[in-house]
Design a protein around this nucleic acid. Structure first.
Lengths: 150, 150
DNA sequence: TTTATTAATGCTACAAAGTTACAATAATAT
DNA sequence: ATATTATTGTAACTTTGTAGCATTAATAAA
């Protein structure tokens, strides 16, 4: 829960891997692999955690327990915007955030809900109709870390 | 995905730990601990997996990636009833299944949904108002494994 | 009931994901 | 340019889950 105070090349490199996929969430091992051993895996864990603490990214756990990280759009540090759902394409196997307000279901008497997370699986736009695309890539605008001093 | 063919004392013991908590889902380490070293942890993994394959239990992954096992009510082998949601009480920290049909949210154009899993957190009936109960226990009817021959 | 068959169990080893401790490095403030 | 300390890299460790294999014990057959 510690706020990060310095902007480094290392963090920028990790951020870049996320910016390459503006819609898609990425997992830790994926990022480490893309960085090709240039950054230690423990460091990547810490940087991703730091991004989450700073409100830059949010952490997603899919329905199988695998975790992903995705850039936040409408989140601020301390309060993540949960007004979206997560989606995994069963064809290209990518996880993404979708802006789709979800209504809290009616619970039986006695239960009081505070939060909800939904995970939907199916075909993403790039994979409809199925088999058209195996792993779509799209280029994202290059963004730099801006100063976030204490 | 292999069907289990023999009913053993070991399986009955694992089943009993689940029957003690008719509503609540339990995690592997919890069960191993309750069995107090009488059954090897690998065996417990296999038995729980077998129960799932047989349609006796289903496997739940919560929003933090932790997995639980819960008795099925309306599931049959091969086809689990997904017409329910999962709930974790933020007070007593138990995970349970709730009969509450959830409507698939409207997705943006291009997406086609096939499945959905929802995880809700909040206060369970035993913990409303908060602080009333720390870890509710309720006794379940004793049930025996019945023959499931090939 | 006794014997044969093989599913189930226990054990060891292994892999992946994640965390902690600590020394070395490198941003930032002075 | 120097001092401060956040950040990084490395090694060790924990937890969760899986795989291989020899042993044990349910069930089927005699």
């Amino acid at each position: 829960m510690e706020k990060q105070k310095r902007n480094t090349k290392t963090k920028q490199m990790v951020l870049d891997t996320l910016l390459n996929e503006p819609v898609t969430a990425r997992c830790h091992s994926d990022i480490v692999q893309q960085l090709d051993g240039k950054i230690d895996r423990v460091t990547v864990y810490r940087i991703l955690q730091g991004f989450c603490d700073d409100g830059l990214t949010h952490k997603i756990t899919d329905d199988t327990g695998k975790t992903y990280y995705a850039l936040c759009r409408d989140c601020s540090a301390g309060h993540h915007d949960d007004d979206h759902i997560h989606f995994r394409c069963v064809n290209c196997d990518t996880v993404s955030c979708i802006k789709a307000p979800q209504q809290m279901p009616r619970l039986p008497r006695g239960y009081r809900a505070s939060g909800m997370s939904c995970f939907i699986s199916g075909y993403c736009p790039n994979c409809l109709p199925p088999e058209r695309n195996k792993r779509p890539k799209s280029a994202g605008a290059k963004v730099k870390l801006t100063g976030r001093k204490k």
